Simulated scan of single mutants.
Amino acid sequence: MVHLFQWSVLLPVVLTLIAAQETKSATMKILADLCYTKWALEAFVIANAVRYFGVWLITHCGSLLQNGYDLHDWRLCIGIFLLYGLVSRAIAFFCMATFKKK
C-alpha cells in the first residue's frame, strides 16, 4: 500500500517535468501533449494573462508565445483537464470493482 502512495506523489512531479520541457522532437511533443499537467499549466497561465493587462501582459507575451499558448485555448485546456479527470476516475472505479476493494 505504501508503494501506491509513493506513486501517486511521484507521477504528477514526473508529468510536470515532461510537460514543462522544451520539446524539439515529435515524440516528446506527443508525450507532453498527453500529460494532464501540461493542460493544467496552460489553463493557469492563460487565465492569469487574460486577467491582467498593460505591462504585465506585454512582458508575458514572449512567454506565452515561447510555450505555444494561445489565449483562446482556455476552454480547450479545461475541457481536456476535466476529460482526464473523468477517465482516471472511471479507470479507478473499474479497478476497484474488478479487484473488489472497498
Rank of each mutant, 00 (worst) to 15 (best):
Q66W: 09
L41A: 12
F94V: 04
G85H: 08
A97T: 03
I46Y: 00
L76Q: 06
Y69Q: 02
D33F: 13
I30T: 07
S63P: 12
A40Q: 06
A92E: 04
Y52P: 08
E22D: 04
K29Y: 07
L82Y: 03
M28Q: 13
L17G: 12
M28T: 13
V45N: 10
M28N: 14
P12Y: 06
L64W: 13
I30G: 00
K100E: 05
L82N: 10
M28F: 12
N67W: 05
Y36N: 12
A43T: 05
A92T: 04
G62I: 05
H72Y: 12
I58E: 15
I46E: 06
V55Q: 13
K101V: 09
R75G: 09
F53W: 03
T59G: 07
V45I: 14
L65A: 08
L15Y: 13
T23G: 08
V55R: 10
V55D: 14
I80H: 00
V13A: 14
I18F: 09
K38R: 15
A26G: 14
E42G: 10
G68E: 12
R75Y: 01
R75I: 09
D33W: 11
L64P: 04
L64Q: 07
L65D: 10
D73E: 10
R51A: 11
A40K: 02
R89N: 08
A32Q: 07
A47M: 05
L15H: 14
T37C: 11
W39L: 03
A97K: 08
C77I: 02
V87N: 05
I91R: 05
S25E: 08
T23R: 00
P12V: 06
F94W: 14
L31C: 09
L57Q: 04
C35P: 00
P12E: 00
Y69D: 01
F99V: 12
A49I: 09
L41N: 02
A19N: 07
Y84E: 12
R89H: 12
W39Q: 05
Q21S: 11
W56S: 13
A40V: 02
F99H: 10
H60N: 15
A97H: 15
K29H: 07
K101C: 02
Y36W: 12
H60V: 01
F44D: 15
G79D: 06
W39Y: 01
A32W: 04
L17S: 14
G79E: 04
Y52E: 14
L64S: 08
N67D: 11
T37G: 06
P12W: 12
L76F: 02
C35V: 01
W56Q: 11
Y69M: 05
C35A: 06
L65M: 05
P12I: 07
H72K: 08
A26R: 13
R75C: 03
G85E: 00
A43R: 00
T37P: 09
A20M: 10
Y52N: 07
T16F: 15
T59P: 01
Y69P: 00
C61G: 07
L71D: 12
F53S: 15
R51S: 13
C61P: 01
L83D: 00
S63Y: 10
L83E: 01
W56F: 12
D73H: 11
M96Q: 08
L82E: 11
K38C: 15
A47C: 05
I80W: 00
K100T: 06
I30P: 00
K101E: 04
G68H: 07
T98Y: 13
T37R: 04
G54I: 01
I30A: 15
I78K: 02
I46N: 03
L41H: 02
V13M: 08
N67A: 09
K29P: 01
I18S: 01
